[in-house]
């Protein structure tokens, strides 16, 4: 009997706490990455406070959830995510654990920024795990293209308008401003990246497909034999031969991948290894998205010139 009374008291107090009034406050936005955080801040302006869950130097496939993630998600008005299957290994259980129905799939505060993106590398035909940890809905690294950043921003603006209709005009105005900025950034970076057009590179992972597509260079091979599968000696041997034949002089790698294997390949091909973080804030001088794009392209151009 005492246990039932205790249970009743607990439930009643929880109900009363839940009914407590909430004071007027900023819209709480939680994003999974720093790139989305930057975009949400540009669109939301002073009306929002934004928190990014992932550290920019963290591999999205090995995110170790922390209690603060659940705390932020529990209080969030809007969750902005890359979507596809980018955060699939860790985000959905955390969203459920957060007990916040607004941000669950299909909820009013759920923003999937991949909606409307012209996706690359959508696997054709039947997908099996034989293909490695293939992204079954297409390559999710789409933010590395200013044209796509405009679509991301539009999705965020729509989400903000849903949870805060009073700020619609502000979000719309900020969105137009961001679209103009992205057009200017694209013009500027196309000129900056002109030396990359037609050049060939090798990368560790399929992170750079959208960047290559926009700026006209080619990734002819990857250190991983298949996405998410560790490099094998046989695969590396094939890759080295191909790099020699095609005279590839630069290997791209993200900071969260090891140095040993890129260096091994570089030693045998005379190529230069360039470490680039694909996320805002991962390196000094990349605190904003435009700075990140300029930084990445400058680093690539310089690496190419040095290698030649």
């Amino acid at each position: 009997m005492r246990r039932f009374v205790l249970l009743f008291v607990l439930l009643t107090s929880a109900l009363l706490l839940n009914l407590a009034p909430t004071a007027a406050r900023k819209i709480r936005v939680v994003t999974t990455t720093n790139d989305l955080k930057w975009a949400a801040e540009q669109i939301g302006g002073d009306r929002v406070e934004v928190v990014a869950l992932m550290h920019p130097l963290q591999n999205p496939h090995t995110v170790q959830p922390r209690p603060s993630f659940v705390v932020h998600l529990n209080r969030a008005d809007l969750l902005v995510r890359i979507g596809l299957d980018y955060e699939e290994t860790w985000l959905p259980p955390l969203v459920e654990e957060s007990r916040n129905s607004k941000i669950r799939r299909g909820g009013v505060g759920d923003v999937d920024t991949s909606i409307g993106i012209p996706l690359l590398e959508i696997p054709a035909g039947r997908v099996t795990r034989e293909q490695g940890e293939v992204h079954i809905m297409g390559n999710p690294h789409y933010w590395l293209d200013p044209e796509n950043m405009k679509i991301i921003a539009r999705n965020i603006a729509e989400g903000l308008k849903r949870v805060d209709p009073a700020g619609s005009s502000v979000y719309e105005r900020n969105l137009r401003g961001l679209e103009r900025d992205m057009d200017e950034l694209l013009d500027e970076t196309l000129k900056l990246a002109a030396p990359l057009r037609g050049e060939k590179f090798v990368a560790y992972h399929t992170t750079w497909s959208y960047l290559a597509n926009r700026y006209g260079f080619r990734i002819i091979g990857f250190l991983e034999p298949k996405p998410g599968i560790p490099p094998s000696a046989a695969h590396l041997a094939d890759l080295i031969v191909r790099m020699r034949q095609e005279k590839v002089k630069v290997i791209l790698k993200e900071p969260f991948y090891e140095n040993r294997i890129p260096s091994m390949v570089a030693q045998r091909t005379g190529a230069k290894v360039v470490e680039i973080c694909p996320t805002v804030g991962g390196e000094r001088g990349t605190e904003t998205y435009p700075k990140l794009m300029r930084h990445i392209l400058t680093k690539l151009v310089n690496a190419l010139q040095e290698a030649k």
Binding site: K102, V108, D112
Partner: peptide
């Protein structure tokens, strides 16, 4: 009932 977000694409 939560307001639905734009539906995700379904492939295959």
């Amino acid at each position: 009932a939560p307001r639905p977000a734009p539906p995700s694409a379904v492939y295959g």
